[in-house]
Design a protein around this nucleic acid. Structure first.
Length: 495
RNA sequence: GAGCCGCUAGCUCAGUUGGUAGAGCAUCGCCCUUUUAAGGCGAGGGCCGAGCGUUCGAGUCGCUCGCGGCUCACCA
C-alpha cells in the first residue's frame, strides 16, 4: 500500500535521532512576532546599515524549502504560504546543541526561529537565528527545487504538494478567497442578507440539469443534491426578506471539462422591487469593483487577450444576436422550416420534435456564444426556454432576462422573476410535458413553490453568477480545475 | 461517449534501427562560517502505468486495460 522508499526510511530514522536529542519531532504551539510576509513587507526596504543600527528582533515560523549548508553554518529558506524568507544558521550564534539540531534538518521540516534581521553580502534580507525550535518533521521528499511539481495529475490529487511547490498556485487560491470575501462585503453593504438553503432537495429545481440522487435512510426517501438554490431563495422573498444572497455549491450530474466540475460554486442573489436592468447595472459595478480591488485594473489579461470590464457593457437582444452573427434573414426566427434549413446548413443535427425556439437556440449556441469575448449581456430570452422568468410587458413571448458572456463563457444568468403563480404553474406543466417527452433536464413541477407564489411574491429580480468561472477570469486560468482546490477526478486506484 | 497525446528514480526529464536503464535536482558519506539552481570528492536508489503477445532478446513493436491532459459531444 504505502510506497516505502529510501528517503522516507531515512527520515523515519531521523525521528529517533531527534528524540534521542530530547526533541519532540511533532511539537506544539509557537509564538510568532511576525509572519513572513508582514516581516518582508515591513522591513524589506531597510538598508543594511539601518538594520545594523536599529536591531529588529523577531520570531517566525515556516517550512524549510531550501537548504545550503557549509561546514559550520547554513542558509535555509523558510516558506510561509506563498512567501519565503532566508534564515542564517551559524554555529557561533546558535550554540553547540542548536547547531547540531540544525544539522539534522531536512527539506520539508517545519521550524520556528528567533533572531534578528540583517542583510547578507548579496543584500538579501535574512534572519540570523539565535534560537531554533523544531516544530514538525516531514517524511516525504519535496519536489525538485527548480522545476517544482508539474505533473498535472499529481498536482490535483495531491494538492497539498502543489501548494508547497508552486507558490503561484497558493496565490490563485488566495485570490479566489479574496474575491469571495469581496462579493460578501459588496452584498452585505447593500443590505443583502446571507442565507443558507437546503443542499438536499426532494424535488430538484431552479435549473435545467441532471441531478445527483442520494437516499435518506430514516425518512426512506430519495433526495437530490441541489442543482440550484433559486426556488428556495424566492420562497424567502415571499416570506418577506427583501434582499438575500447565497454563495455555495451546486451539483450537476454531467460531464467534466475545463469549464465544468460536477460540484461548482454559485452566487445567487434576489432583490425585491428591482428588475433585470438593475441586475445588469449591479453586475457591471460588482465586477468592476472586484477587478479594481483584487487586480488593480478593470482591464484584465485573459489567455493573451485583454478583457475590458469597464462599464457599461454591450447589451444585445437574443434574437438580434442570432441575426448579427449569421447571414440569414429574420424568417429563420419566425418560421420553423426556415430555421431547420438554416440549422442544417450549419451542420447541426436537429431532433424531429424540436420547436422553432429549440432550433434557434441551437443556432445561438453554435454561432453566437463563441464570439462573445468582451463582456456582453444577451437580453430578452424567449419565454419557452426561460420557465422562471417574467414575461416582457411589450412581448409575452420574450422575458426580462439576460445572460452574461465573457470569454465565450456564460458567467451569469439573471432575470426579473416570474411572480404570477398561475403562469408559473403553466410553465412548469409545459416543462413536465417536455420531461415526459424524454427531456431529462426539463424542470419538475414544484407544488410547494407554486403554493409559495400564491401567497404573493413582490416584484423581484434574481441572478446567479458562476464563481469558479469568475475566478478563472480574474486569475487568468484556462481550466476550472486550477481554481478549485480539489477538483473531481476518478478515484485513485489502490496500488 | 469519440479522437489525439502522455505515463521511465522522490521530482524534472533523456533513452538512437529492438541488444546490460541514464542525467540534473533530491538522498547518503567526507570537506567547507555570507550562500541563494552554493561548490568539491565519493556512493546508493528502477515492477520503465498494468497485462497479454511478437521476438533469441521489449522501456522501445502489436493488442487489451488503467489513470491523466487536450479537442469534440452534453452542460453553467
Amino acid at each position: 500500500m504505502e510506497d516505502i522508499n529510501e528517503q522516507r526510511t531515512q527520515r523515519i530514522q531521523k525521528l529517533e535521532t531527534l528524540r534521542a536529542m530530547g526533541i519532540q519531532p511533532y511539537g506544539t504551539r509557537f509564538d510568532e512576532t511576525h509572519q513572513i510576509q508582514p516581516l518582508v513587507d515591513s522591513y524589506g526596504s531597510k538598508t543594511k546599515e539601518e538594520l545594523e543600527h536599529d536591531t529588529i528582533e523577531c520570531r517566525t515560523a515556516g517550512r524549510i524549502v531550501a537548504l545550503r549548508r557549509f561546514g559550520k553554518a547554513a542558509f535555509a529558506s523558510l516558506q510561509d504560504g506563498a512567501h519565503r524568507l532566508q534564515v542564517y544558521l551559524k554555529k557561533d550564534v546558535l550554540g553547540e546543541d542548536s547547531f547540531r539540531l540544525s544539522q539534522e534538518l531536512d527539506l520539508g521540516d517545519w521550524v520556528g526561529v528567533e533572531g534578528h534581521l540583517f542583510r547578507t553580502k548579496t543584500d538579501e534580507l535574512t534572519i540570523e537565528v539565535q534560537n531554533l525550535t523544531f516544530l514538525s518533521k516531514g517524511l516525504r521528499p519535496l519536489p525538485e527545487k527548480w522545476h517544482g511539481l508539474t505533473d498535472i495529475e499529481t498536482r490535483y490529487r495531491q494538492r497539498y504538494v502543489d501548494l508547497i511547490a508552486n507558490p503561484a498556485v497558493h496565490k490563485i487560491f488566495e485570490t479566489r478567497s479574496r474575491l469571495i470575501t469581496g462579493i460578501r462585503n459588496y452584498f452585505t453593504e447593500q443590505g443583502f442578507l446571507e442565507v443558507e438553503t437546503p443542499m438536499m432537495h426532494p424535488i430538484p429545481g431552479g435549473a435545467t440539469a441532471r441531478p445527483f440522487v442520494t437516499h435518506h435512510n430514516a425518512l426512506d426517501t430519495d433526495l437530490y443534491l441541489r442543482i440550484a438554490p433559486e426556488l428556495y431563495l424566492k420562497r424567502l422573498i415571499v416570506g418577506g426578506f427583501r434582499r438575500v444572497f447565497e454563495i455555495n455549491r451546486n451539483f450537476r450530474n454531467e460531464g467534466i471539462s475545463t469549464i465544468h466540475n460536477p460540484e461548482f460554486t454559485m452566487l445567487e442573489f434576489y432583490q425585491a422591487y428591482a428588475d433585470y436592468n438593475d441586475l445588469m447595472a449591479l453586475t457591471e459595478d460588482l465586477f468592476g469593483k472586484l477587478a479594481q480591488d483584487v487586480c488593480g485594473t478593470t482591464k484584465l489579461e485573459y489567455q493573451g487577450q485583454i478583457i475590458d470590464l469597464t462599464p457599461p457593457w454591450r447589451r444585445l437582444p437574443y434574437f438580434e444576436a442570432v441575426l448579427e452573427y449569421n447571414r440569414f434573414d429574420r424568417t429563420v426566427l419566425e418560421n420553423r422550416k426556415a430555421a431547420e434549413a438554416a440549422a442544417k446548413q450549419l451542420g447541426l443535427a436537429i431532433p424531429k420534435d424540436a420547436t422553432l425556439i429549440g432550433i434557434v437556440n441551437m443556432i445561438f449556441e453554435e454561432t453566437v456564444e463563441s464570439k462573445l469575448i468582451q463582456p456582453t449581456f444577451i437580453t430578452d430570452y424567449p419565454t419557452e426556454i426561460s420557465p422562471l422568468s417574467r414575461r416582457k410587458d411589450s412581448d409575452p413571448s420574450l422575458t426580462d432576462r439576460f445572460e452574461l458572456f465573457i470569454t465565450s463563457r456564460e458567467l451569469a444568468n439573471g432575470f426579473s422573476e416570474l411572480n404570477d403563480p398561475i403562469d408559473q404553474r403553466q410553465r412548469f406543466e409545459a416543462q413536465v410535458a417536455q420531461r415526459e417527452a424524454g427531456d431529462e433536464e426539463a424542470h419538475y413541477l414544484d407544488e410547494d413553490f407554486v403554493r409559495a407564489l400564491e401567497y404573493g411574491m413582490p416584484p423581484t429580480a434574481g441572478e446567479g453568477i458562476g464563481i469558479d468561472r469568475m475566478v478563472m477570469l480574474f486569475t487568468n486560468q484556462a481550466s476550472i480545475r486550477d481554481v478549485i482546490l480539489f477538483p473531481q477526478l476518478r478515484p485513485e486506484k489502490p496500488s
